[in-house]
């Protein structure tokens, strides 16, 4: 059944986040040959519209207003509802990001609709749009459908592969004007704690450190390794609690949930709450001096040894590889 799918793009620091393109890919599957309409919301977003088209959108609808500079549930829901009212889509896809998690339930309540959060895959089975999602912190999975009304889901970053970028695609970019008003929550300030560089939740490679890293300086070799691999640095709560790094790096049940292609855990014991945030990574490497550490039970490859010896050696090996391949 051909469907019209509305996909919300997400902008951070003037760029579209990758999850926007992954959401478009999900939208394409759900549309079954119908139409994928992207939405962009913000103060100044028109220049980004073409990228949404290159990655699979057939059209883009934009809502621009200075009151949309910062995300707020009221402002963004007014913009999203205006797009939904004018497009009347059969399905809606957001990214499962801080923004998507905050906004999607409000929209679902407004539409009196079901919502499937945090999907990691979508497929059409016998005409039904079936979403897969992790439950119990990734210890199990469920397959789920919407039984009544509009299809609505959020997709976890880094799981649904985006379509190949195709710059020969073109499509209409239309703007709708919405009166953004009565914002009941006002963002006064945003304090950026996260380190510069690759976004943890979208990184393909993550080098994570735990209490075994022993100090803030101890993170330096990990940063070098991450930088050689074009990846991001993450941490266990143990490392954050000990003040070796900022909480914005925490991975796990109460931190970020990540699914990179490669996760290198250095001096992390592998507590269940940490595994909740990374066990679905494609390949896991563990470096720990304790051969009994639980992290080895989820690792694909393990090195029993001192991370301060192993990590610099690894960095050197990868450097050699880079020189050879370039």
């Amino acid at each position: 059944m051909a469907r019209k799918v509305f996909v919300l793009g997400e902008i951070r620091d003037q760029f579209l986040r990758n999850v926007s393109f992954e959401a478009l890919a999900a939208g394409k599957i759900i549309s079954e040959g119908g139409e994928v309409v992207a939405g962009l919301i913000g103060e100044n977003v028109r220049t980004l519209a073409n990228d949404m088209i290159y990655y699979g959108a057939d059209r883009v609808v934009i809502v621009e207003d200075e009151k949309l500079k910062y995300y707020s549930p009221d402002g963004y829901s007014q913009a999203v509802m205006a797009i939904i009212d004018s497009e009347k889509p059969d399905a809606i896809i957001f990214g499962h990001t801080a923004l998507g998690k905050d906004l999607s339930p409000k929209i679902a309540a407004k539409l009196n609709a079901g919502l499937i959060s945090d999907a990691t895959a979508v497929e059409i089975v016998g005409g039904n749009v079936v979403f897969t999602r992790p439950i119990y912190s990734g210890k199990a999975f469920e397959k789920k459908i919407i039984t009544d009304g509009i299809i609505f889901a959020t997709v976890r970053p880094n799981n649904i592969p985006p379509l190949e970028k195709n710059e020969s695609r073109s499509g209409e970019v239309a703007s709708i004007s919405v009166e953004i008003k009565d914002l009941r929550t006002i963002v006064r300030e945003v304090v950026q704690n996260a380190a510069e560089g690759v976004d943890l939740s979208e990184a393909k490679v993550i080098v994570a450190g735990g209490r075994g890293v022993k100090s803030a300086e101890g993170f330096e070799p990990l940063k070098e390794l991450a930088s050689v691999l074009g990846g991001a640095v993450g941490a266990s709560r143990g490392a954050c609690d000990a003040n070796y790094c900022d909480y914005s790096l925490q991975i796990g049940q109460t931190g970020k949930v990540v699914t990179p292609d490669l996760y290198i855990a250095c001096g992390i014991s592998g507590a269940i709450q940490h595994l909740a945030g990374m066990s679905n990574s494609k390949v896991i490497v563990a470096i720990n001096k304790d051969p009994e550490a639980n992290i080895f039970n989820v690792a694909d490859y393990g090195i029993v040894g001192d991370l301060f010896e192993v990590v610099p050696m690894l960095t050197e090996e990868f450097k050699k590889l880079k020189i050879h391949s370039s």
Partner: peptide, 13 residues
């Protein structure tokens, strides 16, 4: 209060 979603299957990874 009928749910709008339905779980088809639950499985372990």
């Amino acid at each position: 209060v009928m749910p709008k979603t339905k779980t088809l299957e639950i499985y372990l990874p």
